[in-house]
Design a protein around this nucleic acid. Structure first.
Lengths: 238, 238, 238, 238
DNA sequence: AATGAATGAGGGTTCATTCAT
DNA sequence: TATGAATGAACCCTCATTCAT
């Protein structure tokens, strides 16, 4: 049969196995190429070569460059979600749990730069591919519900504020981590300092943790700043 | 001058005036087109048409699509810097001043979506164009020095922590604002809610302000976090 | 048998029956697709899909797209010949018989637009496929012999001219009917009027009948048909 | 400027002259290639090579293969119309005039086989390109009005029937001539005789003339036409 | 008998860019 | 200063066809 529509190989026989491989290899290569070049500059030929296959097979299995990119997005999102779902956060110690959450997201961005780049590319194109994916719509934000649990636990223990939304906390975590990675090139030039060496990365991770926790913690910071009691002896720094 | 080198028109006569116009029109159109399509997908023809000029003129004035993009980056950065330099922050009331700063950055992103998109595009290409620009390297971060002043003032008044770096505060502000705008498409799909209506925007602006201030303010929350904030090679206090 | 040579299934067993079906379904689908798109634009995939089979089967049974088209031509020609051979023309009344002949051909074109299109397509390719068919060469023009019989009968009755060739009469009938159908699209645009509604079709059928009969009839019938007194001296020509 | 839309070169300077040439050369080559291969099988590369130009220039001047084909159709139709408009028919002798008309059309088909083939190709594609041409819609059938004049003159002289429509007469002439040329390949195989040698062509031209005149003549066409029907190598009787 | 997987040779088209006034 | 014409390298994609069960 000739190829026009995307194809998902059946599940029997040796050939089927090979087909699975080919398809998977192409998808993997596509993630790599699109991550490095973006969608527009990512060449079909680069992908097929990286997959040690042929241009033709991309159309055989995915139908078009666009559809391939859609599947790429679905894949990285699914992988991110799966990684999140495996998180085993410390709900007994919500502060610690939230720190874990921050560290997870931050580390995920570091370990999966393609996740960052692909999302940037997709947003550059106004999300036109994401819109075409039904699967993507189904992938609900598991992460937010996790954050919600942490907040609930923390509020129960009176260590967290009652007036913070899980969505906002999650966005904070994502923003602070994403921006640093996604914009490292212009940022590096702008700041005139390296961003991706270990020390810098560690530092920024701590800043995120600190920032998020301060945003979430209950306590009297605002009042204090507003002219309330500020007992020097109690503070560790200064 | 060789026919491939970029040309900057002289400053005398009517024709020179026309030339200025043409050049400026092309640059303006390029900002628009590159902002919408990204560098790779931004067509030379789209730009020349939007500028009501001809492809040829782009090469006449800018030498190449890449050089044109470099000038685009220089332009938007310069404009941002100029806008920043006009900031008149309330140094007497550092809290208020910092809020002003947050609002300025946030509003700038909103008013200049091309700034956001162009930076994303440039980062997608690993900052290859920015690297070619001497001018861009000269544009030092004025913003950071402004933040530094605010921090100094706040610390003098004991309303701000002593252990925060201006650079970090600036990055926070940028991260929290940039991410929301740059990734609005995938974010909207992921969260399943509108992001760009007035209420949502206002809300997020307040979250940023709150988050930044909590991160900077002196007061109680730090105690709790005391053990946590252990940024390598940075802290000396305690 | 080599895997590239066309296969004609044997005649025993259930599988043979299935094979027959598949082969026939493909052939039928091919007629449809080639008729609509022409040979060049007719896609192998379109055919296999229309036949609810697979590309591969086309090669299994027919060897190549070209061979399939050859069989298509053979089929439609055979069908046309068979239809002709079933004609039971009124030899006692040659005028009526000829009218029947015209009506048959005209109606055949109308009922079998694929016959018209496929011949056009084949001629567009300079008859290259027809040349490859032995069968096609065997299919002699049955039609012409029928026309010959009619002419003989008519000449015996002195209603038909003696100096007309059956071949020419047949070509007339075919020309007048074929052109109208085959070129309906450009003709419709050129004439600026509909061609394929019932009234137009009926009209043209009558024109063909009239034209053919006038071309064939001997002297008197025309006057007779006109019902007028024909006084030689009154006529302007001669 | 980059090419997306079709371009018609300006009219000044030497380059403009060359451009005219290039465009014209491409158009001419396209007529040739499409005539021989049909639209679908006509390769863009074949055309550009035949024109001693480059693929690219086809898109520069015509925008697409389809648009090029549209212009091809417009061109051959316009040329046909111009040729018709130069006809100087003998209105004083309508019989002779009609013979001239027949001969003109017949000869035109013979001299311009591309006219025949291109129309066949276009009809094979259901006139989809013709529909896109505004120009084609304007090209009214000049021919029919000429036939009308002949009929009027003939009717005034009482040599032509009063009940024939110019449109029908024109269609007759076209049908009888077109079919013979357009379907020569399958026809040749079917009839088993050569069609395109001089004798055969002359014969068929006379058949057309005879047929058309008999269809149009009033009164005793057969007797009257007796002298006219002089089909070479065929008649001996009467 | 039937089928999923693989293939390679183009096919039309687009793009940034240079030539020649 | 400005512009129409020309260019060639790719780019995405399609097609008929063969391979290997």
């Amino acid at each position: 049969m000739s190829p026009t529509a995307a194809r998902k190989p059946g599940a029997t026989g040796i050939r089927a196995k090979q087909a699975q491989d080919t398809r998977a290899k192409i998808l993997k290569a596509a993630i790599k190429v699109f991550a490095k070049q973006g969608y527009a500059s990512g060449r079909v030929e680069s992908i097929s070569k990286a997959a040690r296959s042929h241009d033709r097979m991309i159309y055989y299995y995915f139908g078009s460059k666009e559809q391939l990119f859609v599947e790429v997005l679905e894949t990285i999102y699914t992988q991110f979600n799966e990684a999140e779902s495996k998180l085993d956060l410390d709900l007994d110690d919500p502060v610690h749990g939230l720190e874990q959450m921050v560290e997870f997201v931050w580390q995920y961005y570091l370990d999966h730069p393609e996740f960052v780049t692909l999302l940037s590319s997709e947003n550059l194109h106004q999300g036109k591919h994401a819109k075409k994916s039904l699967k993507l719509k189904e992938i609900s934000g598991y992460a937010i519900s996790v954050v919600q649990k942490l907040l609930d636990a923390g509020q129960a223990q009176q260590v967290f504020r009652a007036d913070v939304k899980a969505r906002d906390v999650y966005l904070m975590i994502a923003s602070l981590g994403y921006f640093y990675n996604a914009n490292q090139y212009t940022l590096g030039a702008f700041l005139g300092e390296p961003l991706m060496d270990k020390a810098s990365l560690d530092h920024w991770r701590e800043v995120i943790k600190d920032t998020v926790l301060r945003a979430v913690r209950s306590g009297l910071p605002v009042e204090a700043a507003a002219g309330a009691v500020d007992v020097p002896g109690q503070r560790s720094e200064v």
